[in-house]
Amino acid sequence: MAGGLSLYAEGSSFLHRAHPLTKGVLMLSAVALAFIAPSVGWVIAILLLLLALVTAAGVLRRLLTVALAILLPLTLLLLAVQGFANVNNRTEAFALGPIVYYREGLAIAALAALRIACLVCATFLFSFTTRPADIAEALMQRGLSPRMGYVVQAALQIIPQTLDTAGRIQDAQRARGLETEGSLPRRARAYLPLMLPLVLSSLVATQERAMALEVRGFGLAVKRVARFDFADNTYQRVLRWLLAVAVPGAIVARVVGWR
């Protein structure tokens, strides 16, 4: 499998079965709209919609576990900094000892945090319901060059292998006495003795691999034949168009005065 990389969670919800392109457009337009929408109310609406889809896909618990781990520290940092230091700060909200927090900054931080939450949820929604192999296949069916498709597929396999190698090199070098803890200069000095063997072992045989690929016809300029077909239907096509149009439409609305 794509090792520990893929977040794909087995399932048979309508999201799992949807065409990868639909999900991709959904993700991108949800994020775009969250950032174009002018006020917290709209962003919360988008976030709730995304969470509803996440629930429908059966991955709510999984998503909350990983999303909160990312979002909580970010949100706290945003609130702490913007609430204290934002240029628009005027109205006091509360004080922690000598440090005063203001409503304007907190509101801006909240809006930013909610938008990021939309981005995170939309991205995870896509990752949880789509197999990486399907993404590559869908892109190639829509015109991505097979050589680029190969690059993605090969990367997904080689990344976990290289991470394993990195772990082993780390253990081996530590056993030889490499200092990996302590002051910044010491840790920085440890980086090259770890990276060099890793890179050398990764680069070995690239020439052989390239030859072996050419011997099999890699890079031939022929029309690609689909490996398998995705379920697509009119509803999905219409949805994709609607979403694609909604984004520039929202931008226009903002320009014209949507507050």
């Binding site: 499998m1 597929q153 090969a154 396999q157 045989a205 052989e208 691999r209 072996a212 890699f218």
Partner: peptide
């Protein structure tokens, strides 16, 4: 053309 090394002839892009 079949080369010597069995490990470097796999495409690495198929599961």
């Amino acid at each position: 053309l079949l080369f010597q090394n069995p490990f470097t002839q796999v495409s690495g892009a198929r599961e």
